[in-house]
Nucleic acid binder design. Structure first.
Lengths: 239, 239
DNA sequence: CGATAGTACTTGTCTATACAAGTATAGATA
DNA sequence: TATCTATACTTGTATAGACAAGTACTATCG
């Protein structure tokens, strides 16, 4: 860790204090948080500084503010793994299906320009690339392409993926700090149509996902599923 | 444009001005943006106001700031701009579009069995029902049907939705929301095809959503958008 | 009893100022 | 030439004060 101790900003201290009260249970969901004025007095800060702390906590979804009324602790995210793809095999099994998968690509390779851009890497950097089709009772339900930053998981290719799933390995090696999801409805190209054994008219759901670890883009993945065979269910906060 | 004019905050004006310069091509990636001091002077604002504008644009991924050096237009990490599933009108405006909407239904009515089940209400209970088609420059981009529990927002129908959007009103009345989302790729029925002015082959993204407030189901909504005209982008933090 | 006005409090926005800290550049120095 | 130093500029943090806008409650009036 190259993070040495720099003097912590006052607004950060206020944020941490509120978060601590929430996580310790001193403040429960829907409880009223100290007002800006009171927080400012408590920390010997100006109101603007307390305002900044509370504004950022609002953006982070930890509190809810209502003008004229006050600031309240937000209800906890019911599912930590919000729109996150849990292991597709588990999902299929939970559904009562029979999971199998076909590994089409699993290797190191030079990164392409468009992927390099998405992952903030340089062209010609080396990257891990996998392409897998997941099936239920032999019927393809998901095309899954994944690019992995080797700086984050250098031993990725050497794993025995019969003992640990790729997702589980990555989760262990690189705690995800942040994830971005882009969900689209698309008609997919011929190659993917063939892999998924669908007609060209079949609407598909495309989920592109980037995850960050250690302040780097850790993975970029593209998942495509026929609309008739798959849906996403997510529980999370925020309107 | 059904957006009536509420006084727009100064920092919002500064943000919009910078975004406009970026999107019009006046400012290109890596170009230097006016410094806080200069922006402040240009808009007759204080430096703190310009600072807020630039700070928020940084969080939105549109610019990059380097202490001691300056502010630069971010490279187009595509899709980084839109962060949350926020109000569709705001989304369209941020995108540089022109939002309008057609209200097809907005009334109290008796609940149907299937909706009653989803909302944990009894058949023949009264519910608020709205059906709106949102457009960008006249092109339909979203079919939005919504059922609202009157216990949560009894004054819903009496609002002047030219002054406050339905979403904003609901957020205010029941600020703490837990939500469940089901996302599917579908081909939609003839009625919706007609409203959205799409061909039957156009893949659409369907987002069904339930929100909870005060331990009740507050709303159930169905949102359908043509895949070619809309996508969902979500950024979620962990820890 | 119901409506209204006043109040106390909250968050939202904005200003003018201040100092700290990081960077680049030009000019002086060894 | 290579290195240091002053400086001018940038962003980052923080203050104290101001007014606007929204809400909840109380006391008053009709």
């Amino acid at each position: 860790m190259d993070r040495s101790e720099q003097p912590i900003a006052l607004y950060e201290k206020i944020k941490k204090s509120v978060v601590k009260d929430i996580e310790s249970g001193k403040l429960n969901p829907d409880d009223k948080v100290l007002s800006e004025t009171r927080l400012a007095k408590k920390f010997n800060a100006s109101r603007m500084t307390a305002n900044r702390a509370l504004k950022e906590l609002t953006e982070e979804g930890r509190i809810v503010r209502v003008q004229g009324v006050g600031t309240f602790v937000a209800r906890p995210k019911p599912d930590a793994a919000l729109l996150e793809i849990k292991s597709i095999s588990k999902e299929i099994q939970d559904w009562g299906g029979v999971h199998s998968s076909e590994i089409l690509v699993l290797k190191k390779e030079k990164i392409t320009a468009s992927i390099a851009q998405k992952m903030n890497l340089k062209i010609n950097d080396i990257i891990f690339h996998s392409l897998i089709v997941h099936k239920d009772r032999g019927i393809p339900v998901q095309y899954s392409e994944r690019f992995i930053n080797p700086k984050v998981a250098p031993e990725y290719l050497n794993q025995d993926f019969k003992k640990i799933t790729p997702s589980d390995y990555l989760l262990k090696k690189s705690p995800i700090q942040q994830a971005e999801h882009i969900i689209e409805a698309v008609n997919c190209n011929k190659q993917i149509q063939k892999l998924l054994k669908i007609k060209s008219s079949e609407p598909c759901i495309s989920l592109k996902r980037r995850t960050w670890s250690f302040d780097m883009v850790a993975t970029y993945s593209i998942i495509i599923s026929p609309g008739s065979r798959y849906k996403l269910v997510g529980k999370f906060m925020r309107g």
